[in-house]
C-alpha cells in the first residue's frame, strides 16, 4: 500500500524523461508541472476542469491536469505539449489559423493528439464530443475544426 503522509519524493515519467520531484499529496499535476518542473505549456484557465487549457495526455488519454493529483501520476506515461514537436496537428493548427492568443492552444493540441492517436477514423460526432472539453475564446472554432479534420481525414 502506498502511504504518503507529507512532502514526498516521487518520480514522474514525462515526455519520456524520468523527472524526480518533491510534492505534497494535495498538489495537482498541473501545479507540479508548472511550478516545479518548468513545464508551463499546460495552462491554468479555471483549475476546475471546465476549460481544458491544462490538458495533457496520461497513458495516451486526454487528462485535465488540474483534476489530477501529482501523487496519482507515478507509473503513468505523461505527455505534455513540450513533448510534441513538428507533429501534423501542430502544423495544421498553424496553417489553419486555429489560434489567436494561443492560451488554449496547448490544451487543444493535446486533446487533438490523443484523438488522432486513439481514434484516427473519428466521425464528426466524436470530434465534437472530444473537442467540447476545451474552451477557445478567440476563434469561433471553425479553424480548429478544420485543423483537426484535415489531420484526421488526411490519414
Amino acid at each position: 500500500m502506498l502511504k504518503l503522509t507529507g512532502t514526498t519524493n516521487i518520480t514522474l515519467n514525462i515526455n519520456g524523461e524520468k523527472r524526480p520531484v518533491t510534492v505534497r499529496p494535495s498538489e495537482t499535476l498541473l501545479g507540479i508541472l508548472r511550478g516545479k518542473l518548468g513545464l508551463t505549456g499546460a495552462k491554468p484557465g479555471c483549475l476546475n476542469g471546465d476549460c481544458g487549457a491544462c490538458t495533457v495526455m496520461i497513458d495516451g488519454k486526454p487528462m485535465k491536469s488540474c483534476l489530477m493529483l501529482g501523487v496519482e501520476a507515478p507509473g503513468k506515461k505523461i505527455q505534455t505539449v513540450e513533448g510534441l514537436n513538428g507533429t501534423p496537428i501542430q502544423r495544421s493548427f498553424i496553417e489553419h489559423f486555429a489560434f489567436q492568443c494561443g492560451y488554449c492552444t496547448p490544451g487543444f493540441i493535446m486533446n487533438c493528439q490523443s484523438l488522432i492517436d486513439t481514434n484516427p477514423n473519428a466521425p464528426d460526432e466524436i470530434i465534437e464530443e472530444w473537442l467540447k472539453s476545451n474552451i477557445c475564446r478567440c476563434t469561433g472554432y471553425e479553424e480548429i475544426e478544420k485543423a483537426i479534420k484535415s489531420v484526421l481525414r488526411d490519414k
Binding site: L39, V81, F99, G102, T105
Partner: peptide, 10 residues
C-alpha cells in the same frame, strides 16, 4: 509567434 504557441513555448 505561431511556432511558440503550438509548442507551449509561448
Amino acid at each position: 509567434e505561431a511556432e511558440d504557441k503550438v509548442t507551449g513555448r509561448a
